[in-house]
Design a binder for these strands. Structure first.
Lengths: 153, 153
DNA sequence: GCGGACTAGTTGAACATTCAACATATGGAA
DNA sequence: TTCCATATGTTGAATGTTCAACTAGTCCGC
């Protein structure tokens, strides 16, 4: 085994800032969404992707991919969301294995309410504290990361 | 309630790239660490912080803060790590409420092995795909985010 | 040195996520 | 057609995490 290529001091510092910052940012948003709207970030993410899909519905596999979740996790989470009446499942006529997750009107309404608060949080803790050029750099960088890691597991 | 200040198209794109990218990056690192060394990212993080502390030990509260975890979570995770023999707990002489988490030799050895692989993963999926200026921007940005969200919950 | 407010850390139950196994359906090759 | 490899989605058990309650110790004003 060859000697690992350790990070230099600057890389180390920047990488750590990212790790710590992103963990705490997520935690902040999670608590915020949860206390105000009873949603976790990943539930919120599911509602967002559905709301943007044609007819507000997606096949489970595609939704899993969009929301960066495993199918199993999505399946469980969808059951929970279904229990809350925010999503319902429909079977797919073309492919009998398939299942559509459909955003309900109540789900859409909940999402609308949540999004209003969420965007404020995102601004307060992220957008508004970051230089516009740095934000662009972040977008560029994580776009590449996304390409590099490839499609979801 | 006033109209929310929605993100513009660019902000939206960059924010989303970050959200998706970071979720998948974490997932990638988690699987990597877990399959090769049986550690989750948060366990790894704990070992790292301990290894850097004087005498390789820290009070639980401080460790929780450093590793961005709740005390409860740390307590459970430490029990697991103790079970694996990577960490042990010592009581604190000064403050009888206090507990030190101490990295064992085995813990240090495991960390050393894990770190060698981990740094490769970090390079492959993050450092090496990002322009150095963009990495600096990330460090700068998340440093500010970290300040903004304040100490851990 | 008493009493009340606060801090450290743990615990167990509720909840969420992962993992592997499963049931079902598709699609193509022989 | 039949068979087999592959894809979809769900399930339950094991594992992790969160939440609230709790024990125990410290701090500080009186």
């Amino acid at each position: 085994m060859s000697e690992p290529r350790w990070l230099d001091a600057t890389q180390q510092r920047d990488w750590r800032a990212y790790v710590d910052g992103s963990v705490r940012l997520t935690e902040t948003m999670d608590r915020d969404l949860k206390t105000k709207h009873g949603l976790s970030v990943s539930e919120y993410e599911i509602l967002v992707r559905l709301s943007e899909a044609p007819e507000r519905r997606l096949r489970m596999a595609e939704l899993a991919e969009n929301a960066s979740q495993s199918r199993s996790r999505l399946s469980h989470t969808c059951s929970r969301l279904e229990g809350k009446g925010l999503v319902k499942r429909d079977s797919c006529p073309n492919d009998k294995r398939g299942v559509f997750a459909q955003l309900t009107d109540e789900g859409y309404a909940t999402l609308e309410r949540a999004a209003r608060d969420h965007v404020e949080t995102v601004r307060t803790f992220f957008i508004d504290v970051i230089q516009p050029e740095d934000l662009e750099a972040i977008g560029r960088a994580f776009g590449l990361v996304l390409k590099r890691v490839g499609p979801a597991t």
